[in-house]
Design a protein around this nucleic acid. Structure first.
Length: 997
DNA sequence: ATGTAACGGGG
DNA sequence: GTGTACGTTACAT
């Protein structure tokens, strides 16, 4: 008999030779050894509610009718879930031999005479076991038992359990997960289509490991001999041999997590299909009796590998980051600043059959595609949140990564319900869902309050304080004891002490009985407070991160409960409960608004669900903070516990366009105690959208920046006009105008003619074989000419080569104007005004709003650096002026004076944007000289040589240096000095011309 | 306004 | 495995 501790990774069950279910737990100890634990004796069961007085008779009938299946019927006293129950009710506990039989008989039982309802008859057996034994996913277990050896296990050891105990742990023990990322390359027989797994072979499988495997971080399997010396590859005679070796490597490395990019929808299904081709069983998991389980949905696949976690980085990134596109190349660039190896997939067959250099290129391409997802996963810590969620809600890691909110909530409801003898209903069938849907149409689900925004821009003396209710809905549920278990169903019960919601629903007070949801939420909230406290004292960054992930997981869990009560497919659906929560929410926010306005006399300019934004007038951030704190404390005092209005942040300037759409420039107190401008928070204002070209995103961002950081509406308008002017003059670089759309099927299959489809046809006629094929992304720009927009879509390269003219009208109307208008309209600037390029802002009005600080509007800094010289635009006559050609400080056309401030700003901007571009670090191999833009994972070149970093100076810096003496005479000494300072700083950075790090 | 078709991303 | 099931946006009506 031994005792062993392990983190629970997976759980399922097997049926032994005498047809009894045996629970199987797979876990990993702190020593890194994996273990399979078999638990015997746990039996499947469910509950039946019979007509009062009929219990015995129904029990007998069930036992009789399902002889051989039902192994026992007993009686237990339980609380029914819906409505406040004064006492427990007698229910039948029906036990069956094997788990699948529950499903088999539950509908029959449901229809039997005398049966009212069946409870908890749809809980997967492994969860039934975990729930009943208080075992949570990814939690620490202490197992007592004997070591055994079966024919089913692949783990380091196997045990037959005598006892499984949960170890209470505040901080998760350190168990290092082994992760493996992989990627496949195929050889398509038809280069117009995606490779077909029924016939096109896999030619390469690349793998990345963390931690390393046999000293290797990566390994590439190649299905044919390669006549070149390449490190970390293995070659085979054909696909089958390679596939077998791949499975062998999985077994040998034994990863806890398998990842990759889009593996759920591509690599894994493809791989499984190829394995089937050779009749190789897909035993990639940690058990020998089960292979990989593939569940294909409409457009979604779930893949389960026993004992291992499958996580698709693409999915994780999609749920964590809002990006324009989710291609690996784009995602890697945005998140970890790395790119894929440049290679057109159409060239794969050519490279595959090519010379040693070509195949080398293909191998390194594949290698990188396995490395990138793993790096993203690690660097962005994409797993932390899920592992903590698993520990908080109890689901297995695998199910948390994929599953929706409802499973997590139910896991907790079942666990806490079990402790209190509350049984829960089964999930609703179609009929019940339909009934609920109809009910919802009649009695609608009322949402939260969104206060009418006082549209406009706030800056200068105005400061906006943001106050938030900490976990509003969870707090309300706790404060007013709202739950399906406390809801008073009949008026007759109203002599019980209760609370009436604004909607009229009544809930017994917590002194009578605490509700299930309030209990769970109260514990979660206390737990979160504890975790946050621990975070404050935690010095170790790794542990701090983990605690942070945990408090986030708890927050996510808490916020899921409200939604669950109004979810059509919930086990317990109660509009009365859902509406009571939002009802109290509306009451709370209205009350808060009223108090702030009446007691303090401040203006509430906006509020949504659980937050209010208060306008105060002060230049002093300390004072603003003081006011915020005061409001927070005093209002919280007026509300029942645990409702808490927290002072969240100060916006130095704030722009609100409409409900749910605003942007604010945050100020925060730095370590030096001083206030600093911080990030711009944005809500509902999008600057990146798939259907917009880059120009639009860039313009939107710049406008917001000018509005919030410089508080200069005129300048923002002017900037927009400049862009429009540039667009009309064809000065906008073509790549900023490119739109992309992917060709999902053959052109003729499209009904509506879309630009990229028409273009695809055009290209096919023009260049024949090189034309884009199905599944490819097509880049296009809209050019001038006749016909619909679709007919005027053109290939950017073709446009370049033939000097076609861009349809500036289209880009203005369809791309730039819509978002710009939405931004400017609430500020009282019409479309007309935006477009009126020639009528600039009068100097008079400009000076009125901005003092004499900026007569010029500086062109977008990015563009400036690419222009020949540094330029400013004269505000009076709108001419673009070259700083070098300026005689004195007068505009050569209208002779209005140009302020030194403006020139200084122009130069400074040029310097700053130049600084960003100033240094470029390149990495090159000391052996073969091949250069990389980023260091490789291994810090080694593909030839095996060491990578050495090289620092180079960009030209733009030199340009500014050249310009400086020419303009310095136009500047005040202070400005000159400031510029010199910056240049000096730049010199310092650049000074060591070559160094290695 | 409201319903329906298209698309993603992998090679 | 005692489980089901995308989510968003553009275009057409």
């Amino acid at each position: 008999m031994i005792t062993r501790e392990m983190i629970l990774l997976d759980c399922d069950y097997i049926v032994d030779s005498s047809n009894r279910p045996v629970i199987r737990l797979i876990g990993k100890g702190t020593d890194g050894r994996t273990c399979t634990v078999y638990v015997e004796g746990f039996k499947p069961y469910f509950y039946v509610l019979a007509r009062e007085g009929d219990e015995r008779r129904v029990a007998e009938r069930i036992a009789e009718r399902f002889q051989g299946i039902v192994t026992g019927v007993s009686f237990e006293r339980k609380f029914l879930p819906l409505g406040y129950q004064r006492s427990k009710r007698e229910v039948l506990r029906v036990e069956v031999r094997v788990p699948t039989q529950v499903k088999e008989i539950r509908d029959k039982v449901r229809k039997m005479e005398g049966v009212i309802e069946v409870f908890e008859a749809d809980i997967p057996f492994r969860y039934r076991y975990m729930i009943d034994n208080g075992i949570y996913g990814y939690s620490l277990l202490r197992v007592k038992g004997e070591v055994i050896k079966t024919s089913l296990g692949k783990t380091s050891m196997e045990m037959k359990a005598h006892e499984v105990r949960v170890v209470e742990d505040e901080v998760a023990p350190k168990v290092e997960l082994k992760m493996m990322s992989f990627d496949i390359e195929c050889l398509p027989s038809n280069d117009k289509l995606l490779p077909d797994p029924s016939k096109d072979p896999i030619i390469i499988i690349s793998i990345a490991f963390y931690p390393s495997f046999d000293g290797k971080d990566t390994l590439v399997l190649v299905s044919r001999p390669v006549n070149a010396k390449i490190d970390n590859i293995e070659c085979f005679n054909g696909e089958e041999e390679m596939l077998r070796r791949f499975l062998e490597i999985i077994d040998a490395y034994d990863p806890d997590l398998i990842t990759g990019y889009n593996i759920l929808n591509f690599d894994l299904p493809y791989l499984l299909r190829r394995l089937k081709e050779y009749n190789i069983p897909s035993k990639m998991g940690r058990v020998l009796d089960k292979g990989v389980q593939l569940k294909k949905g409409e457009r979604e696949t779930r893949i389960l590998i026993p004992g291992r976690i499958v996580a698709d980085v693409q999915e994780l990134v999609k749920s964590e980051f809002h990006l324009k596109r989710y291609t690996l190349d784009h995602v890697a660039e945005k998140l970890i600043n790395e790119k894929k190896v440049e290679l057109d997939y159409k060239d794969i067959p050519k490279l595959w059959n090519g010379n040693s250099n070509e195949i080398k290129k293909l191998i390194e391409y594949a290698r990188k595609d396995a490395i990138l997802p793993l790096k993203i996963l690690l660097e962005k810590r994409l797993l932390d949140k899920y592992l903590e969620l698993s520990r908080v809600c109890g689901l297995l890691p695998q199910d948390v990564i994929y599953g929706g909110q409802s499973a997590k909530v139910e896991s907790l409801l079942l666990r806490y319900g079990k402790k209190r003898d509350i049984i829960l209903p089964c999930k609703p069938d179609d009929q019940e869902i339909e009934r609920r849907r109809k009910e919802r149409e009649k009695k609608e689900l009322k949402g939260a309050t969104v206060l009418e925004p006082k549209v406009g821009i706030y800056s200068g003396d105005d400061k906006i304080l943001v106050l938030d209710f900490r976990s509003l809905y969870p707090s309300i549920i706790i404060a007013y004891n709202i739950c399906f278990t406390t809801l008073l169903l009949e008026d007759g019960d109203s002599e019980v002490s209760h609370i009436t919601a604004p909607t009229g629903a009544k809930f017994v007070s917590k002194e009578v009985r605490e509700g299930l949801m309030p209990e769970i939420l109260r514990e979660l909230m206390e737990f979160r407070v504890k975790v946050k406290k621990m975070m404050k004292e935690e010095k170790d960054p790794e542990r701090y991160r983990q605690l942070d992930a945990r408090q986030l997981a708890i927050k996510i869990m808490m916020n899921s409960f409200y939604g669950y009560t109004g979810y059509l497919k919930a086990r317990i659906y109660s509009l009365d409960v859902a509406n009571a929560i939002t009802g109290f929410g509306r009451q709370t926010i209205e009350f808060t608004k009223q108090k702030v306005e009446e007691t303090y006399g401040y203006e509430v300019i906006y509020g949504d669900t659980d937050s209010i934004m208060v306008r105060i007038k002060t230049r002093n951030f300390d004072e603003a903070e003081e006011i915020g704190r005061k409001i927070s404390i005093e209002i919280s005092r007026l509300l029942p516990e645990p409702l808490l209005l927290e002072f969240e942040k100060i916006y130095k300037s704030f722009l609100i366009l409409s409900k749910k759409r605003y942007a604010g420039l945050r100020v925060t107190r730095g370590d030096d105690g001083k206030w600093h401008e911080d990030v711009i928070d944005m809500k509902g204002i999008e600057t990146v959208r798939r259907e917009w070209c880059d120009l639009v995103s860039e313009v939107m961002e710049t406008i917001l920046d000018i509005l919030l950081r410089e508080n200069n509406v005129e300048k923002a308008v002017n900037y927009f006009r400049t862009v429009v002017k540039d667009l009309k003059e064809g000065k906008i670089p073509l790549e900023k105008l490119i739109l992309t759309r992917s060709l999902s099927k053959l052109p003729k299959e499209y009904k509506a003619k879309q630009p990229h489809v028409v273009l695809a046809e055009k290209l096919r006629k023009r260049q024949g074989k090189m034309a884009p094929s199905v599944g490819e992304r097509i880049a296009f720009v809209i050019v001038k000419g006749k016909g619909s927009i679709a007919e005027r879509a053109e290939d950017p390269e073709y446009v370049m080569e033939n000097g076609l003219e861009i349809d500036d009208e289209y880009y203005l109307e369809k791309q730039l104007l819509q978002p710009a208008e939405r931004l400017f309209k609430p500020l009282g600037i019409s479309k007309k005004e935006l477009l009126n390029v020639n009528v600039g802002v009068t100097l008079q009005s400009f000076l009125e709003t901005n003092g004499n600080s900026g007569v010029m509007s500086v062109r977008s800094s990015m563009e400036m650096i690419f222009d020949d010289n540094i330029q400013v635009v004269c505000e009076r006559c709108n001419t673009t002026l070259d700083i070098l050609k300026l005689k004195g400080r007068f505009c050569p056309k209208c002779f209005s004076q140009i302020s030194e401030e403006a020139i200084y700003n122009a130069i400074l901007r040029a310097i700053l944007s130049g600084m960003r571009e100033l240094i470029s670090v390149k990495y090159s191999c000391e052996k073969c000289g091949r250069s990389y833009s980023r260091p490789t994972l291994t810090q080694r070149c593909m030839c095996g040589g060491r990578l050495v970093s090289e620092i180079s100076i960009k030209e733009s810096y030199e340009k500014i240096r050249k310009v400086k003496p020419a303009v310095s005479s136009m500047l005040t000494p202070e400005h000159r000095e400031a510029i010199d300072e910056v240049l000096k700083l730049a010199d310092l950075i650049v000074a060591p011309k070559s160094s290695s790090s």
